[in-house]
Design a protein around this nucleic acid. Structure first.
Length: 245
RNA sequence: CAUCAUCUGG
């Protein structure tokens, strides 16, 4: 069952749900019973595909056959609602799961906070942020990444950098995504030089700049019409978009 | 230190 679950999840994440369902068929044919992970993968796949209604039906189905949904099930649905732009619905599901005794965890909160951030609802994102802290759910790097990104997008660069300080004060190490957000945002503001300093800093921490990093830099130079510099970065990359080892 | 949910460019 584990192997079939792995395969099924791959198809779900690739948005090839037809194949996922045929794996489900094989599970039945083999006389096996899908478990909560099987259902979670399918629900997630449907949600990522925007078929949240269908995922709700699957949720009912799993309950009917006696398979108890868990925190991950509900979080996947929360994500599906967020990705279709229904933040209100996502919040409702989160409140419902609390009533049913499933405490939302850091991932659940991160999902909604990020969605609010993307919709520029920075105030309500921060409200959820303080709510989670109040409930003893510790924000992690992903939480801060979403908030920092939102602050840059709202031209609150000062707030972004203060959040960055806040996270390191909490012993949360900025990760590759954090740095990519910084590099990209600085580049879009025309501060490519400072972005390069960030890149130097990430190298110093042993983090390897990746495709995102280089694309952000190239884009930044292009925006400044510094085509020679853009070209220099571009030429430093190999066929796979990464610098030669 | 690998069966499931959340964050970054184009």
């Amino acid at each position: 069952l584990q192997s079939l679950n792995i395969l099924l999840n791959c198809f779900c994440r690739c948005q090839t749900l037809g194949y996922a369902y045929s794996v489900l068929g094989n599970i039945f044919k083999s006389g096996l019973h899908p478990d909560v992970i099987t259902f979670n993968s399918l629900i997630n796949g449907l949600c990522l595909d925007g078929k949240v209604a269908e995922s709700a039906r699957l949720l009912d189905k799993m309950i009917n056959i006696g398979c108890e949904p868990n925190l991950i099930t509900y979080s996947a649905i929360v994500n599906g609602l967020c990705k279709t732009g229904d933040n209100g619905g996502a919040l409702k599901v989160m409140r419902k799961m609390e009533e049913r005794g499933f405490s939302p965890n850091v991932v659940t909160y991160n999902t909604i906070i990020d969605s609010l951030c993307k919709d520029k609802l920075v105030i309500e994102a921060r409200e959820l942020f303080t709510e989670m802290i109040g409930k003893g759910v510790k924000p992690d790097v992903v939480t801060y990444n979403s908030l920092i990104h939102a602050m840059f997008n709202a031209d609150q660069t000062d707030e972004a950098t203060s959040l960055l300080k806040e996270m390191t004060a909490k012993d949360l190490q900025p990760n590759l995504v954090t740095y990519n957000i910084l590099v990209d945002s600085l580049c879009k503001e025309g501060r490519v030089f400072e972005a390069q300093n960030i890149v130097a800093r990430m190298r110093k921490q042993g983090l390897k700049p990746d495709n995102f990093t280089y694309c952000a830099l190239i884009d930044g130079y292009c925006l400044q019409s510094e085509m020679v510099e853009a070209r220099r970065v571009f030429d430093s990359l190999g066929n796979n978009g990464l610098p030669p080892a």
